[in-house]
Write a protein that binds this DNA or RNA. Structure first.
Lengths: 346, 346
DNA sequence: GTTAGCACTCTTGAAAGCTGAGTGCTAACA
DNA sequence: TGTTAGCACTCAGCTTTCAAGAGTGCTAAC
C-alpha cells in the first residue's frame, strides 16, 4: 500500500519543483494554476493540508505557503526524479591535456562542476592507501640528503627527503634500489606489513636503518597528504542562496570548506556507504557534518581499478536542483574513470 | 615645516586608535575624555575641523563622528606607529618538525597568522624562477613513461612524467642523466637560455628530442605551479568586519581568495617594490587588486638566499591593527628565513 | 468529492515619528 | 588669542504604525 496516491504525488512534485525554482513558500493558488491537474485552489488546499499532516511539507508560519520538509525532499529524490540516461557529453571541453598533474585535473574538474551547477563542489584525490607501488627510487641529492621518489599504479608521484648521517656510495645505492623495488613493487600501502619490513631490513644488512627511514617516509608520504588532498571550488556560491547566506551560517560553512579536514568525514561516509557505484544524497540532518544541516550534499565515488577510489561532492541548499546535480555527478564520474583509466597506461 | 603640529598629531592618533577599536565614527567628546590632552570637546571640534580640511579624516555624514581617510591611515602607518623591536617570540610553537614538506609549513604558517591576527593570511611558496637546479634525474618508470625529478637549492622537489615512444636502455639513461646534471646544475630557470639548450641538444645526439621533452617538462614544472602555490587561511575572517561583510563585497573578496590567481598580482607588486627587506602597506585604493579597495593589505617578503623569495600577506579592513599585523609579519618573516636557511643544508 | 466565498492571520514594505550623538557657531572667559 | 560653555540644528537608525497582499481554514453550495 502506498502512503501517497497519484494526485498527492503530483501535487507534492509540483510544490517541490516550484520551490526549487523560487525559494519562496508556494501557495495553493500557484499550484492550481501551474500544474496540469485542473483543480481549484481549494481542493489543492485540502490535499496540502493532508500532505502537511503526513510530514511531507510544512508551513514556515501560519498563512504562508508550504515548503518541502526533509522527508518531502527525500521522497522527491527517491521517487519523483526521472532518471535520465544522458550520454556523456558537455564538460568534455574541460578535459585537460596534461593528465599527469592530478591535482590540476581535479581542481579543474571541481571548478567546472561548481560553474555548471552554481553550488559548491569538492573532489578528493584517489586514496593512496590501496594504491600499488609501481616504481621506487632513492637518489643521493647531496652529502646528507637522500631523495625517495615513489610512483604508484595510477602514475601518481610522491617524494620525500631523507636526511642521512653520511653519503652512500653509488654501489650501495644501486643495491638498495634494487632491493626496495623488488620487495615493494606491486604492494599497496596497507599490504606492507611487519613481515615484509622485517625481511627487507634483514636483507639490507648494515643499511637497515636507511630502509627504516625509507619506509617511514613512504608511510608518511601516503598518509600526510591524505588530509590535504581535497579540492574545492565555488565555495562562494552558497552566498547566492539567501537561506544560507546570513553571516552566521555562511561563516560556518565557509569555514568547513577551508578546513578541509572537516570534509574528510563526508568522504569517508560516502566511501563506506554500501552502494559504492551509485550516488549518495544527504538531505539536511542526514549529512555527517553538523554544520551542513541546512544543506544537501550529493556525493559520487569514482574508481580507478583495484579498489583505489575518490569522492566527488556537491554542496548546496536543500532546495538544490537534484536532477541536474545528480546528472552532472554521473557524467563527471564516468569521465574521471576514463581519464585515470587511460592514464593508467595500457 | 610640518603640516601637523604636535597637538593635531595627538588628536589624529587618538581618533584613529579609537576607530580601530570600535569601527564606529568617533566624536569630539570621546576624544576629549579619552585622551590625556585635557581639552574640552569644543576645542577638539575645532581641531577636527582643521584635520578634516587637511584631508586626514572625514565624516561619513553630517553630524556623525569622524573616521580616518586613506591619507589619515597612511600618516598613521608612516609616522604614528611606534616601532617595537620585539624579539622573535611566540609562533615558535607553530614551527613544524617536518620542514621537508614546504606546502605544509606554509599552510601552517598561514593558519597561525590568520589565527593570530583575525584577518586573512596569504603566503606564497618561494619563487622557483630564480631558484637553482641542484639535482636532476630521469628514470624509466615503465615502457612508455619517463619520470623527471628536479631538486632545487632550497630542497624543493618537482616531478613530471614524460611519455616516450619507446623505452631507453640503462646506459643511455645514465648518459643523459650525467649530461643533464652537468649542464644544468647551478642554473636557475631564467638562466637556461637558447644557447644552453642548443648545446645540450647537440650533445644529446639522437636523443635530442628527449632533451626537448625534459626541458619542456622542466619549464612546465617551474611555471605551472607558480599559479597555484598561494596558500590562504582565515578567509572567512573578513566576515567579522561589518564594513566588509555585506553580501556583495564579501563575495568578491572571497572569490579573489579562491581564485588564487588574482592574488599573484599582489605578490608581484610586493616583490617588485623597491624596498625588498621591509614591509609594504597598501591602504585602500593603493592595493593592486581592485576588489580590495575597501581593504588594507600588508605584505612582507622573505628570502632564501640567492634571490629566491616569497611573499606573506595579510588582508583585512582598513581599520586593521597595523601595529600588531606588522609585528607579526616581521617575526614570521625572520622565522621563515630561519627555517629555509636551516633546511638549505649547511 | 469539488468549488466558491469569506473572514482571519501574518509577512512585508513604506511612511512617520522619536531619539541620541555629534556638529557648527556664538559669546563669554582667562 | 586660545579655550570653553551653551544652544540650535542635523541626520542615521530604531521603533511604531499602517495598509497591502498572499495564503489559509472553514462553511455552504453545487
Amino acid at each position: 500500500m502506498q502512503e501517497l496516491d497519484e494526485r498527492k504525488r503530483k501535487i507534492l512534485n509540483a510544490i517541490i519543483r516550484n520551490y526549487l525554482d523560487t525559494g519562496e513558500p508556494v501557495g495553493s493558488r500557484t499550484i492550481s494554476k501551474y500544474s496540469d491537474l485542473n483543480l481549484s485552489s481549494a481542493t489543492i488546499r485540502n490535499e496540502m493540508s493532508d500532505l502537511e499532516e503526513l510530514g511531507y511539507i510544512l508551513q514556515p508560519h501560519t498563512s504562508a505557503g508550504r515548503i518541502p520538509s526533509d522527508k518531502g525532499y527525500r521522497f522527491y529524490v527517491d521517487n519523483l526524479i526521472v532518471e535520465k540516461d544522458r550520454e556523456v557529453t558537455e564538460m568534455k571541453e574541460f578535459m585537460i591535456e596534461h593528465t599527469e598533474r592530478v591535482e590540476q585535473v581535479l581542481q579543474q574538474m571541481a571548478k567546472a562542476l561548481a560553474a555548471n551547477t552554481n553550488y559548491t563542489a569538492m573532489i578528493t584525490a584517489p586514496s593512496y592507501q590501496r594504491n600499488k607501488v609501481k616504481f621506487l627510487q632513492l637518489s643521493q641529492v647531496d652529502e646528507e640528503q637522500l631523495l625517495a621518489v615513489i610512483v604508484t599504479e595510477g602514475n601518481l608521484v610522491k617524494n620525500k627527503m631523507i636526511s642521512t648521517r653520511e653519503a652512500l656510495d653509488n654501489e650501495t645505492l644501486l643495491k638498495l634500489n634494487i632491493l626496495l623495488n623488488s620487495s615493494l613493487n606491486g604492494l599497496s600501502a596497507d599490504q606492507i606489513n611487519l613481515a615484509t619490513i622485517a625481511r627487507l631490513k634483514e636483507q639490507a644488512g648494515i643499511h637497515s636503518n636507511i630502509v627504516s627511514d625509507v619506509l617511514d617516509a613512504l608511510a608518511g608520504a601516503f598518509q600526510e597528504d591524505e588530509e590535504l588532498e581535497v579540492y574545492t571550488s565555488g565555495t562562494t556560491n552558497i552566498l547566492k542562496y539567501p537561506e544560507l547566506s546570513d553571516s552566521q551560517k555562511a561563516s560556518e560553512l565557509l569555514n568547513a570548506f577551508e578546513e578541509k579536514k572537516q570534509l574528510v568525514s563526508l568522504v569517508n561516509e560516502a566511501l563506506s556507504s554500501g552502494e559504492q557505484t551509485g550516488i549518495q544524497v544527504y538531505i539536511g540532518d542526514e549529512s555527517p557534518i553538523q554544520n551542513m544541516k541546512d544543506c544537501s550534499v550529493v556525493t559520487a565515488t569514482y574508481q580507478i581499478g583495484e579498489g583505489m577510489q575518490g569522492t566527488i561532492g556537491i554542496i548546496g541548499p536543500k532546495r538544490m536542483d537534484y536532477e541536474n546535480v545528480m546528472d552532472n555527478l554521473k557524467t563527471l564520474k564516468s569521465q574521471l574513470d576514463l581519464v585515470f583509466q587511460k592514464n593508467k597506461g595500457e
